[in-house]
């Protein structure tokens, strides 16, 4: 069976597909979020060193990883749009930015609330924290740069350049705890394994999956509005079901 993979590169067909996909990501996200909270608070034991405070990890680590991952996906889409001039890829980049920025903020916020009881400071100018703050500024820069340019195609290209250059920061965040002597601890979960209790791992991975699915659902929902706004002069927009009233 021949499948035309490029069919969904057209905003008109992707609009419908995205609409169908949203609930398939949103509901599992909501269920996994509740399961993750349950395991994180009622199954995972109290930590020997950090007592109950460590439970912030179940939000902090997934949000931090996703803030970096979403940035790379965003930069990848933006680069595709820049190179192949595909409108939909640029729209996906625009759609991912606010969610990425919120995850970067959640990472910094939960980090501050964890740092205060453990390190005695809300904030330190440590390599990990500083590079994550720069990530938040890169997201905000991308959003405001695009918002300041009226012509969407020019906004796409300008944003893409910023996103691509800024992606250098992601490996810096990731390796900062190895390259520099940071107050922030090293990675708890490595490819070689982890010292975490099994139920702590389950809670963290469940929350990670929940936030990942949430990010996909909300970006698909947001990109539908972006598609409609940008394609409003196309014939297909006047023919969608939502316009039949």
């Amino acid at each position: 069976m021949a499948i035309n993979w490029f069919k969904y590169a057209a905003p008109s067909s992707f609009y419908g597909l995205a609409g169908k996909l949203v609930p398939w990501f949103a509901w599992p996200a909501a269920i996994l979020f509740c399961v993750g909270i349950y395991i994180g608070f009622f199954v995972a034991p109290t930590d020997a060193v950090q007592s109950e405070a460590y439970r912030i990890i179940f939000i902090h680590v997934p949000a931090s990883i996703l803030s970096m991952f979403i940035y790379l996906i965003m930069a990848g889409y933006a680069a595709l749009g820049l190179i192949f001039n595909t409108r939909l890829s640029s729209m996906m980049a625009t759609s991912l930015a606010p969610t990425g920025a919120l995850f970067a903020f959640i990472s910094l916020w939960t980090g501050a609330l964890w740092g205060k009881p453990m390190w005695g400071a809300w904030w330190v100018w440590d390599a990990r924290l500083t590079s994550e703050l720069i990530l938040l500024f890169l997201y905000l820069g991308f959003i405001s740069l695009q918002a300041s340019i009226e012509d969407p195609r020019r906004a796409d290209r300008a944003g893409a350049l910023l996103a691509i250059v800024g992606s250098v920061n992601v490996p810096i965040i990731y390796f900062s705890v190895k390259w520099w002597n940071t107050l922030h601890q090293g990675s708890t979960v490595k490819l070689s394994g982890t010292s975490m209790h099994i139920s702590m791992q389950q809670a963290m991975f469940t929350m990670f999956a929940a936030l990942w699915l949430y990010a996909i659902a909300i970006s698909l929902l947001r990109v539908r509005s972006i598609i409609l706004e940008r394609e409003r002069n196309s014939q297909w927009v006047t023919e969608i079901v939502e316009m039949k009233q």
Binding site: I37, A53, H60, P98, L102, F105, T110, L113, K116, S225
Partner: peptide, 28 residues
């Protein structure tokens, strides 16, 4: 009470939930 860490823990989870709910409302 979370053994004295209530503000830090509920502050983290509360703000995260609030952000997610506001984002959903804004997108809708």
């Amino acid at each position: 009470e979370m053994k004295g860490y209530a503000w830090y823990i509920w502050g983290s989870y509360g703000v995260t939930l609030l952000i997610i709910m506001v984002e959903i409302l804004l997108v809708v």
